[in-house]
């Protein structure tokens, strides 16, 4: 049995309570949401914390998917399973369900959360790629209830590092709603439930026949999950075509920075970046049109 080092544990009763505990305990404490990233690291003693602050009782406050006129707002404690089953997301952003179907397994999805996924900032993590693709904003709350809103680019500081400070908490993700949107996600994994060898998300916004805007987000191909502005630039104003997807794929392949590991060679991952960019763009356009 793998057991973590000793730690103390408290259940937060509100977001502000959680923040006040974080403020007091500083870097020796960690929030625990679904626990599916944190606990495995603690059991292997790769991460040791003196205190865990459990935010699962805040699900009523932080677990939701709500639509507004310009944006869809998703609470940080929304679970994978809720994202997978949300009719709002299925209608507006099918990329979520595409991704959720291939994230981990039902046991993990029942507990793991959107906030935990983004804050873990694992370079292979799928929801960061989804949020990057959709140009989502992250709402971070700190001491005294102060809130700031950052882009995904700002949110991701580096592998396993985010803009969330020791005494802050991610409370919400806001996904802008623009007309003519289609989105899709694809992942290559060695086995169901495995982390991505490479995955890619694509979103396009069409007006008439032309692409008004397009975004691609890749996971597992570099230290950071980032959008690829060059792809957006190349697609804007164009009519969708196989040639265009080809071009986007080529940009994806050369814009990423994969490493060779047990999941595959860097060369193969680069190839997949191109292949999955083409596939998801094709699918996103199909969806935008239907």
């Amino acid at each position: 049995m793998q057991v973590p080092a000793p730690f103390e544990y408290e259940r937060a009763t509100s977001v502000d309570h959680a923040i006040s505990l974080l403020e007091r305990l500083g870097g020796t404490a960690r929030l625990i949401a679904g626990g599916h990233s944190l606990l495995p690291m603690m059991k292997l003693r790769l991460a040791n914390f003196d205190y865990l602050i459990d935010i699962n009782d805040l699900h009523a406050e932080l677990g939701y998917v709500e639509t507004g006129p310009d944006e869809v707002r998703i609470g940080a404690l929304t679970r994978h399973r809720e994202l997978l089953e949300s009719p709002v997301l299925a209608a507006a952003f099918p990329i979520f369900a595409d991704a959720e179907r291939v994230i981990a397994d039902p046991v993990v999805r029942n507990r793991g959360t959107l906030g935990g996924s983004l804050c873990q900032a694992d370079p292979s993590e799928d929801l960061s790629a989804v949020c990057t693709t959709l140009d989502a904003r992250c709402v971070i709350r700190g001491p005294g209830g102060a809130e700031r809103v950052v882009s995904m680019e700002e949110f991701h500081v580096g592998p396993y590092e985010t803009a969330v400070a020791d005494d802050e908490i991610l409370v919400e993700i806001r996904v802008p709603v623009r007309p003519g949107c289609g989105s899709a996600y694809a992942k290559v994994e060695r086995r169901a439930g495995d982390w991505a060898v490479v995955s890619a998300g694509a979103a396009v916004w069409l007006d008439g026949g032309a692409i008004v805007d397009a975004r691609v987000g890749l996971a597992a191909v570099g230290p950071n999950t980032t959008g690829i502005p060059e792809i957006s630039a190349a697609l804007r104003g164009q009519e969708p075509s196989e040639g265009l997807y080809e071009q986007a794929g080529a940009i994806a392949a050369r814009s990423c920075d994969p490493v060779t590991d047990q999941r595959g060679s860097a060369e193969y991952k680069r190839h997949l970046a191109a292949e999955l960019t083409r596939r998801t763009l094709r699918r996103a356009v199909e969806r935008a049109r239907s």
Binding site: V188, R190, V197, R263, G264, S265, Y268, K269, H271
Partner: peptide, 8 residues
């Protein structure tokens, strides 16, 4: 025969 090795 992982995907990467098949691709090779």
């Amino acid at each position: 025969l992982t995907p990467s090795r098949v691709w090779d």
